[in-house]
């Protein structure tokens, strides 16, 4: 017997499921954050070969940067599923992911500015990776603006899904913007990404923080999608019943 996945693609069945999963993801995110931060601050060296204690910004900067890109891909994924199968819940998921993605993108730029000021000597530079990350922020904001600009939900969903899909070109650009073959030939301030020369404790703390951010992203997306479901399905019988019971 196979699981009926379509059952969970209806807002009515997904609503309680999301509600049940939220606390789990929140707890895991919280515990991982505590462990990751403890490890990152107390089990890691104070001074690196090239950097001093400010390198610890890495424990929020890198996870936030990964999430900013991953969430965008998730958002586009749901939007595309919505465009192809015309499922309401997919569009609701896409709309619920966007604000978190925008927050993580902003955090990437913010923490990057502080790191950049200490290590490189500048808050901001038109470095390819920073520039494309800024455009990613514009894309998230544009997606949300377009969504709220069109009153007809179905049209709003489709238009913003198209915008998100076109903007997805930004993700590979961000990802590959630093790996230019000769560092003296390119203007990038970011160094090549490499896992090879990372002190083991730094790597552990960093990976734990990445998982923590992931779990948080799930939790907050589920929390938000419940709001979106209530709002959009407010005329459905099950919502009226649910609201009646809440009294």
């Amino acid at each position: 017997m196979s699981i009926n996945w379509f059952k969970y693609s209806s807002p009515q069945t997904f609503y309680p499921l999301a509600g049940k999963m939220t606390p789990w993801f929140n707890w895991i995110a919280g515990i991982l954050a505590v462990v990751g931060l403890y490890w990152g601050f107390f089990e890691t060296p104070h001074i690196l070969s090239e950097q001093k204690q400010y390198y610890r910004i890495l424990f929020v900067h890198v996870p936030a940067a990964w999430m900013s890109m991953w969430l965008y891909l998730m958002m586009v994924g749901w939007a595309v599923v919505g465009l192809i199968f015309n499922t309401r819940l997919s569009f609701m998921m896409a709309a619920s992911i966007a604000p978190s993605g925008a927050i993580f993108t902003f955090l990437t730029l913010w923490t990057g500015a502080f790191w950049g000021q200490t290590s490189w000597g500048t808050w901001w530079d038109w470095d390819p990776r920073m520039t494309s990350e800024l455009i990613l922020l514009f894309l998230y904001v544009g997606y949300m603006a377009l969504q709220s600009a069109i009153d007809d939900t179905r049209r709003a969903d489709r238009a913003s899904a198209l915008l998100a899909l076109v903007g997805a070109i930004c993700i590979p650009i961000i990802y590959w913007s630093v790996n230019c073959p000769d560092p003296n030939e390119c203007t990038a301030l970011h160094q090549q990404s490499s896992m090879s020369a990372v002190e083991p404790n730094i790597r552990i703390a960093w990976l734990i923080m990445v998982f923590s951010f992931w779990m948080y992203a799930f939790a907050i997306a589920f929390m938000r999608v419940r709001n979106v479901i209530l709002e959009r399905e407010r005329n459905a019988a099950w919502v009226t019943e649910l609201v009646g019971r809440k009294k």
């Binding site: 690196l48 490189w120 000597g121 530079d125 560092p183 160094q191 990404s193 090879s196 020369a197 002190e199």
Partner: peptide
């Protein structure tokens, strides 16, 4: 007018870097 520094991709303590 401005001098910016770049750091490498290594996140290792100086002793280890020296040994490497």
């Amino acid at each position: 007018e401005q001098v910016l520094a770049k750091h490498d991709e290594k996140y290792i303590p100086p002793e280890v870097a020296e040994a490497m």
